[in-house]
Amino acid sequence: MSYDNLTALLSLPVMETWMFYVLSALAICLGVGVLHDRVVIRSGFILIGVFGTIAGFFLLLSAQFLAMAQIMIYAVAITLVVVIALMLTNPRLEAERTAEPDDDNMPAMAKFFASCKRNMTLWISAFSFITLYVAISGENRWPVAGLPVAKDQVKVIGEALTTTYSIPFEFSSVLLLAALMGAIMIAKNEPLHDPDEEPKKAIEDSKTQENNLALTR
């Protein structure tokens, strides 16, 4: 047995292929669910599943640290923020997509072009996927190193973050702080010059939530 049983189990080739396809099926289903679900809050909850399956991919790629960070940051924190924002804005007011004109008299080609025009985004994204796939695929396209993955990944990442990449790391922390303060400033409801206000964003949010309850429900 190697240093860590889970990684050893997951790096068996058969196991990896099967796990990859099971997880990718899950990811695709849930991703379509996120984009397609009519209730926006439910699609926000499905997002947890997408992030969770991507954390599963990270585990398959033997990046444990990133998988845990993915679950902690994306699947919990960001999803919670998204869901709470969805509850604060009123998603029921979102208009349904306009009904497609049902013109049976058009010839097939015209119908086809009309649907193309309506679904321009779909075509663009399909085209981008095909382009990316053509650019990606093929044997010997990437210099795949047949090396096993580094054993003490956390140590490698930590050392690199504190030595080689210390300045970007500091900048990213400054960015996070600035984003936090900026988000609080933007989301605050009162005028800025009020002297005895307190930065109680969560309380404000819960109060606004209670006011909005009558609308959402």
């Binding site: 240093y3 902690m72 990944q153």
Partner: peptide, 8 residues
């Protein structure tokens, strides 16, 4: 499940 990133 004795992971190297256990507490995380």
């Amino acid at each position: 499940l004795n992971l190297p990133t256990g507490i995380f």
